[in-house]
Design a protein around this nucleic acid. Structure first.
Lengths: 224, 224
DNA sequence: TAGTGGTCTAGACCACGCA
DNA sequence: GCGTGGTCTAGACCACTAT
């Protein structure tokens, strides 16, 4: 016997995918769904909760449960992400927040570059990045260093000036990254901190989190 | 009036921090706690669920609820992470899995370097990384490129040979990254993909996830 | 004021683990 | 077989939102 809340989740997902429920619009109320489907309200809530964690629904107290702007579930978005439509949100020399200068090994009086960018598929943002740069980063790193990736935004932004492409609203990806990745609920998620250096100086720092169970490690004394 | 489940969460956290509940040992059963504290079992479950999401507790059906090996909550670990005790788990030239060669722009017949490392505080692992390198990465990137950070492991591992430091069990960080970071439940989490290139060739690729609400973007036409 | 989601209750039965 | 967590019910009251 399938769990009821999973059946209800499937029921809702089908209506989301089919277009019966429309982006940014409310779905039926919890009590209404419960009555309609002949289950308890708490069972409906559990199904909605999982879909919320997957980023498909958002609940607003006193108002209702709404579809997000996502057309499909996050796992699909992730798979299609190869296109890499990167848009810069902002790039500024700043000193606000202690995180940047701490991680770059700067004293609090020095400012650093903070670059924010969004990746999208079509108009759909699916990723957002926040990257701290040492104030000397751009001058010290050769132009050829950034023809792509991390640096494409630097090239596109035309350091040291910057054009903001547009304001964006990052896609709500609620906290359940495990579900987001179709990883079993309860699977590990692991933190990553990346930094890149030139000489002894940390020049870039980036915070991140990884779903853990795709990283089953193995040990070797020597590479193959 | 404080929510009851938050009061119970505090109650449990206090007992975890004080050492009354010990690592890897079971805490009282849900029904027992409910009776003891004079609340419904569902309320206890909600409190336990949040602590599970924070990585402090793990529930085992038919067996009980146990403390993980974490001594303190993950947010504390994150703050102390400056030490960067990095241990390499494995580094191998491999072709398994389609992700690596796809993202590096290789054809399936070519293999790539996959490096896995763990960051720890003392003996406590708190982060795990999985990084893909283009097979030409090490030869093309100058030695001075990696004296720290991303590259420290390359230096420490003495490319192309490698010594595995030890096998490690990554800390279970359950799926609620929002709670993990003391971000409000329901806050967005955003995906990051990083890659670094040399010339036109993507040389390194890394998958990651970010808690979203520390990244309130702002737009500027021009950096300050 | 009416309707919504958020919390909470006091039960119930189930599947699982362990002795 | 017993205790555990997992699911589910049929209510209840609250805080919040929109009208």
């Amino acid at each position: 016997m399938q769990k009821k809340y999973l059946e209800i989740k499937d029921y809702l997902m089908e209506r989301i995918r089919s277009g019966e429920y429309k982006p940014e619009q409310a779905i039926p109320a919890e009590r209404e769904l419960a009555a309609q489907l002949g289950v308890s309200r708490m069972t409906v809530r559990k199904a909605i909760e999982e879909l919320m964690y997957e980023g498909l629904l958002i609940r607003r107290k006193g108002s209702g449960t709404f579809l997000t702007t996502a057309k499909s579930s996050k796992p699909d978005l992730l798979l299609e992400a190869g296109e890499n439509a990167v848009k810069i949100v902002s790039c500024k020399l700043c000193s606000e927040g202690s995180y940047g200068y701490k991680m770059l090994g700067l004293d609090p009086s020095r400012s650093y570059w903070r670059l924010r960018r969004v990746r999208r598929i079509g108009h759909q943002p699916y990723a957002y990045e926040d990257i701290y740069f040492h104030p000397d980063f751009f001058p010290t790193v050769g132009r050829e260093f950034y023809t792509k990736g991390l640096s494409r935004m630097a090239a596109e932004s035309g350091y040291p000036d910057l054009t903001v492409y547009e304001d964006v609203e990052a896609l709500l990806c609620l906290h359940n990254t495990a579900l987001l990745l179709k990883v079993e609920t309860g699977s590990p998620i692991l933190q990553i901190k990346s930094y890149f250096s030139s000489g002894d100086q940390v020049m870039m720092f980036c915070r991140s989190y990884h779903p853990g169970d795709s990283y089953k490690y193995q040990s070797l004394r020597r590479p193959l």
